[in-house]
């Protein structure tokens, strides 16, 4: 679909919902997101202009099979929450509009710092920025975990029973994705899976879990008083589970961008401590340890799904192909986390 056609279709869709004809301008496909197709655009109605973002299911990709509806329902319900999630008014499955299901959310101000070191090897934030932004990120995560998911009607996400089910269900989810990729399980991944199966922790604390809360999914505005967290993006892995899954994911070496800091912001222990303080929950080391290892399982599963989509020709997105040579980096980090990198069994 050409951009002109896409813009005209979006204009019709949005105009019908706003009850007035609109023009779509400045339409651009975003390169940051590696999973869903993301289109940024302005809507002009008379003299008024507002920014929107459309997220469309890709034909194939990292997290197939795709279903945008659960994510939309959560974002839509949270549109009035103080949590900085993007207000998300519209969703459709109608293929007549953009061929595949998509939703539209309001564009929040800010830019998305990515989890990559700068050319000089430094991280994306200086010390003052880290000191200002790190606590905001920890507090926002605590706020996310405080959402009353029962009152919000999020039972459709499927609540695990208290006990080991939250951990076991996540492990099973990612093992299934690995199996579905049809690609071989590497020995480092096999070692991690075996460890996870034996160490799934129990918890009674079932909360809303973002699933991909980390550097790269934060919108940040730089103001005179320092950086401000203005948005939490990419909710496609949202589910109900153990909140420590988000804490471990955000603090994972995967997202440190060449720094020793959780999401390039805070020392991992400080990040967990600040989250614990803000949430009133314990950052239990045993549970945290499980989710640290699961983070690598999850990331490798995502990469294998992308590689499978690329090798089979279901996607032409070359960004999937780079995972082939990135896997050794994952093995390195996994080896450091599990303790076998020095040749010693963990």
């Amino acid at each position: 679909m050409a951009d002109d056609d896409l813009g005209a279709r979006l204009a019709r869709f949005v105009g019908e919902r706003l009850g007035a004809p609109v023009r779509v301008t400045h339409l651009e496909r975003s390169t940051e997101g590696f999973s869903q197709e993301t289109f940024v655009f302005d809507v002009e109605a008379g003299r008024e202009r507002r920014g929107y973002v459309a997220k469309r299911e890709p034909v194939a990709g990292l997290l197939e099979p795709y279903d945008l509806e659960p994510e939309f329902r959560v974002l839509h319900a949270l549109s009035d929450d103080p949590l900085p999630s993007p207000p998300t008014p519209w969703f459709t499955r109608d293929p007549a509009v953009l061929e595949r299901p998509f939703y539209v959310m309001e564009r929040l101000p800010g830019e998305v710092p990515i989890p990559a070191a700068r050319a000089d090897g430094s991280g994306p934030f200086d010390d003052a920025e880290r000191a200002a932004l790190g606590p905001q990120v920890a507090r926002a995560l605590a706020r996310l975990h405080a959402i009353d998911w029962r009152a919000r009607g999020f039972q459709f996400l499927g609540a695990p029973r208290p006990g080991r089910e939250a951990a076991e269900r996540e492990l099973a989810r990612w093992e299934e994705r690995i199996r579905r990729s049809g690609l071989p399980v590497s020995p480092p991944l096999a070692e991690a899976l075996l460890w996870c199966r034996r160490h799934a922790p129990a918890t009674d604390a079932i909360t809303l879990v973002h699933g991909d809360y980390r550097l790269g999914n934060f919108l940040v505005v730089h103001e005179a008083g320092g950086p401000r967290l203005t948005g939490i993006l990419d909710w496609e892995l949202v589910h109900l589970g153990d909140p420590l899954e988000d804490v471990a994911w955000c603090a994972s070496p995967l997202w440190r961008a060449g720094t020793p800091y959780a999401s390039a912001l805070l020392p991992p222990e400080e990040f967990a401590a600040r989250w614990a303080e803000a949430s009133g929950r314990a950052a239990d080391p045993e549970r945290l340890r499980f989710y640290e290892v699961l983070a690598f399982v999850k990331m490798i599963a995502i990469m294998l799904s992308g590689l499978d989509a690329f090798r089979s020709g279901r996607t032409t997105d070359l960004r999937m192909a780079i995972f082939d040579h990135q896997l050794p980096f994952l093995h390195l980090l996994l080896g450091m986390t599990r303790g076998w990198l020095a040749g010693a069994p963990a």
Partner: peptide, 27 residues
């Protein structure tokens, strides 16, 4: 086995070039 995993990981990494992830992400 752990000793092999460690050695193989380092062999795999030795032939890789610095990542262009930042450029790929930002376009």
């Amino acid at each position: 086995i752990a000793e092999h995993l460690a050695a193989q990981t380092m062999r795999d990494l030795a032939v890789l070039k610095p990542s262009l992830f930042g450029e790929i992400s930002k376009g």
